[in-house]
């Protein structure tokens, strides 16, 4: 006990280095950004020389059609990517949750796309989508069809496909892990009661996995708003604004248009959106833990 008192400072010593770094390089910059978003800020200026403009940046953005378009593209991208990936990933996991040879090889090869640099992923897909030398069009032509203008007319779809390729494995692997840790007793009981494959999936597996699935989905959604490099390399946001997601627009506003104040305000909009998602995830987790605790307590009382 005496030792514990003497070591009261210990947790702070353990915590301090990480806390200092995060405050200096994460929290302070975020505060700085919020402060800067209320100012007319040019990259050549020091922030103390800038003029306070109130909510002007936010209001300008709100009525700026290209910002709205970019927000729309971002939402379209994030939602469709996550929806397709969830369906594909969970479907594949349910299908492949068997004791088959080669499963570990499959999983290893499946995580490769996630580990490779987004820049390289963009590079690969840009090559494959190339109108004349690209793999897809060459294949289409070899079977006698017309080539598709992948990164022109169907740019957003093409970008979505590339992201699905890269991130479906993430959901697949998390779902598979969740499936394999399901209580066997429930499945056995269902089998004895004569539940078919589909019934087991609908009434047992999916409901039991729901907590994991929702967390996975929200994690993926948060990450989908972070995507930038793949799109930058594939289309540079074009043609027009058709694939210019918010992250890309922020970086262009800051570097090309040189309006740091507006870019900061835009970052804040994006941040608020993500904050909402994070709070949702957090709240969901809390509810889940509380429910689990309640259930456990109930079971113990019965015993």
């Amino acid at each position: 006990m005496k030792l514990a008192r003497a070591n009261r400072l210990t947790p702070y010593v353990f915590m301090a280095p990480a806390a200092v770094i995060m405050v200096i390089a994460l929290l302070y910059p975020l505060g700085y950004m919020v402060y800067g978003s209320f100012r007319a800020w040019d990259p050549s200026q020091n922030i103390s020389e800038t003029e306070f403009v109130g909510l002007k940046n936010y209001i300008t953005l709100w009525f700026d059609p290209s910002f709205r378009e970019s927000l729309g593209v971002t939402l379209k991208f994030a939602i469709s990517v996550v929806a397709v990936e969830m369906v594909l990933g969970v479907g594949l996991a349910l299908l492949l949750d068997r004791n088959i040879r080669g499963m570990s090889i499959l999983r290893t090869l499946f995580i490769l796309p996630m580990m490779i640099a987004p820049v390289v992923v963009g590079l690969m897909w840009r090559y494959m989508y190339h109108p004349t030398v690209g793999t897809f069009n060459r294949f289409l032509k070899s079977i006698g069809l017309d080539g598709v203008d992948w990164l022109g007319q169907h740019a957003l779809l093409s970008v979505i496909i590339a992201d699905i390729w890269q991130w479906t494995p993430f959901i697949f692997i998390l779902t598979l892990a969740a499936l394999q840790s399901l209580p066997q007793s429930a499945l056995e009981a269902a089998k004895i009661d004569g539940a078919g494959g589909w019934q087991q999936i609908w009434h047992i597996k999916l409901p039991l996995m729901m907590p994991v699935l929702i967390v996975t989905c929200l994690l993926r959604l948060i990450d989908a708003f972070k995507v930038l490099e793949v799109i930058l390399v594939m289309t540079e946001g074009g043609p027009g604004l058709s694939t210019e997601i918010l992250a890309l627009r922020i970086s262009r506003t800051a570097t090309e248009f040189r309006e740091l104040g507006v870019a900061a305000a835009m970052s804040n909009y994006l941040l608020m959106l993500l904050l909402l998602l994070t709070v949702a995830m957090f709240a969901f987790n809390k509810i889940q833990t509380a429910r689990a605790a309640r259930l456990r307590a109930a079971v113990q009382e019965e015993d």
Partner: peptide, 26 residues
């Protein structure tokens, strides 16, 4: 500390671009 850690996990690099550029340079 634990809550802050959880919250900042979602900050995208693009959001950090503007402040980091300003701070690191000036």
């Amino acid at each position: 500390a634990s809550l802050t850690t959880l919250m900042v996990r979602m900050v995208p690099p693009a959001v950090l671009l503007v402040p980091v550029f300003g701070l690191w340079n000036n």
